[in-house]
C-alpha cells in the first residue's frame, strides 16, 4: 500500500474484482496498485483489499478495491462485499472458455447482491498467452454490448491495458456520481466522507473528502 501523501483525495470509489478462480484477479490488482506481478501467487482465500489514488477527469480519486476468491463456494462470504460497490470488474481468462461462459452467472450474482446501478466492466485477461487464446475478442465484445457492459482485454503479466481498464471504470463511475451530485447538491465539495465508508450511487451528498490526518506508519 502506498504511503504518506496518498491520504488526500476528492472521491472514494469502492470497486470489486470478481470472476472465476485462476483468471488473474489478484495479479490485475497488484499490477494496478503496486505495479507488481507475482508468478508464484497463491490462490486467494476469502477477500483481499488494496487501494490506489489516481487522477480521473481532473479529480483525485481513491479506488478502494476488493479482490475476492473466485471459487463458487466462497460466494457465501464474498457476495457481502458487493454491497455498496460502485463498480465491478468481471474478469475471465481469454485462454479458458469456461471462465467466459461463467460470466453470465457472475452477472446474475451481481444482480442478486449488488446495487442496481453498479458499473460493470468485462475484462478478458491473459492476452499475453497468444498461442492459447480460446475466446475471440469479437465474441466478448458482442456479449458486452448486448449486456451493456464496458469491455477491455488485458495482460496483467505484460501490464497491457491494466491502467486503462481501471481508468475507464473509474471515469464511468465519476461521470455518474458527478451528474448525481450536480443535480442534488449545489456544493459537492463541502460534503465529506469518512475514510472507509463508501459512496453509494443513490445517495445525494457524500462525494468529496479530504483527509489529512494520520501519517502512514507502514
Amino acid at each position: 500500500m502506498g504511503r504518506g501523501a496518498e491520504e488526500e483525495y476528492d472521491y472514494l470509489f469502492k470497486v470489486v474484482l470478481i470472476g472465476d478462480s485462476g483468471v488473474g484477479k489478484s495479479n490485475l490488482l497488484s499490477r494496478f496498485t503496486r505495479n507488481e506481478f507475482c508468478l508464484e501467487s497463491k490462490s486467494t482465500i476469502g477477500v483481499e483489499f488494496a487501494t490506489r489514488t489516481l487522477e480521473v477527469e481532473g479529480r483525485s480519486v481513491k479506488a478502494q478495491i476488493w479482490d475476492t476468491a473466485g471459487q463458487e463456494r466462497y460466494r457465501a462470504i464474498t457476495s457481502a462485499y458487493y454491497r455498496g460497490a460502485l463498480g465491478a470488474l468481471l474478469v475471465y481468462d481469454v485462454t479458458k472458455p469456461t471462465t467466459f461462459e461463467n460470466v453470465t452467472r457472475w452477472l446474475k450474482e451481481l444482480r442478486d447482491h449488488a446495487d442496481a446501478n453498479i458499473v460493470i466492466m468485462l475484462i478478458g485477461n491473459k492476452t499475453d498467452l497468444k498461442h492459447l487464446r480460446a475466446v475471440a475478442t469479437e465474441d466478448a465484445q458482442g456479449y458486452a454490448e448486448k449486456e451493456g457492459l464496458s469491455f477491455i482485454e488485458t495482460s496483467a503479466l505484460e501490464a497491457t491495458n491494466v491502467e486503462k481498464a481501471f481508468q475507464t471504470i473509474l471515469s464511468e463511475i465519476y461521470r455518474i456520481i458527478s451528474k448525481k451530485s450536480l443535480s442534488s447538491t449545489p456544493h459537492p465539495s463541502s460534503a465529506t466522507v469518512k475514510e472507509g465508508k463508501t459512496i453509494t450511487v443513490g445517495e445525494s451528498q457524500s462525494t468529496t473528502t479530504t483527509t489529512s490526518c494520520c501519517s502512514s506508519s507502514s
Binding site: 500500500m1 483527509t211 494520520c214
Partner: peptide, 15 residues
Amino acid sequence: DLVKLPFEKLIHALK
C-alpha cells in the same frame, strides 16, 4: 497500535 488506525491501515495491519 490497532486502536489508532483508520480503516485502510487497519485492514493492512490485520493482514
